[in-house]
Amino acid sequence: MIGLTQPWALALLPLAALPLFLRWLRASAVPRLDLRPVDGASRAVDHGLKALGILGLGALVLGLAQPYLRGGSVVHRGIGTNLVLLIDRSSSMDDTFAGRSPSGAEESKASAARRILMDFIAGRPDDRIGIAAFSTAPMLVLPMTESRSAIASAVSALAEPGLSQTDVGRGLTLAMGMAAQEAATGARAVVLVSDGAAVISPEVQVMLRNLAAQQPMNLYWLYLRSKGSKGIFEQPQPGEADTPQLRPERHLHIFLQSLRLPYHAFEADSPGAVEAAVAEIGRMESRPILTRRPVPRRELGWLCYLIAALAAAGLTAARALERPWAEARVKPLLVLP
């Protein structure tokens, strides 16, 4: 698609019609031109001069309008997926895996997740990525996009300390909704990154089940397990209470399994484990995808000017070559012997 930066310049375009009414070369009177032979080369030159004139003036006017090849994107076949990252923004994410405030070499769960996700995204150029976050309320951070700079800026904004509580259910609704809305072809996946879970209310459960039934997608849960908290795969000891209130992580896992979606849960209790889990997700989400690759806007003005320069040079050459039909060397009227 071609766009114009200064479309008003096209108002000068009638100038390009000058060669239709004016002649480039000086006239040379020749009687009864209609009785003289015509040759193809001459006719071509005749039309060629006109065309050069129109081209030269037209190209200059078009160049002044500053045309450009609209940037945008080209469809491109790549390996990746439509990925929605759902990030837990609760304040507990700012603690280390050991459950303490970060100090020295130990990094917080949030910063580890951020760093590893940055690398993950950088290594997958063909993914379309959307980012959602949740604490008490779900929030859409970045709609699905191919722009790496936008994704990087959204991930880097996760460095800010988190908020209060965790409402994973509504967050999942938002993320799955984003993934489901995505009209593009290719696989869809939702990666939930959280260090805890909460009870999902019955209405939200119904919404999630509906979403899962509408649109198949892969579901990953990267559970950042803090020291001392119970794992999601741990079976309760006989006699131990097993309610969603006491073991929300385990029950979220059971609920997600029940959605009948391809679902994988990873439990990571160290940055290294997070990296391994993310690599595993990356391996599983390598499918052909039709995505769009950004194409930078390209200026076309220089091309117009070049064409105009060539046309003007051609016209100059034509004038350099112009000659009269017959040299005006008039002989005397009378000659006497």
Binding site: R89, S147, A150
Partner: peptide, 23 residues
């Protein structure tokens, strides 16, 4: 306040900014 997007160059990422604003 909560930052959703760190400052991005507006000409390349206008669409992302507009999308986030809409949301």
């Amino acid at each position: 306040s909560l930052t959703l997007l760190d400052p991005v160059e507006i000409c390349t990422d206008y669409a992302a900014l507009a999308g986030t604003l809409d949301a």
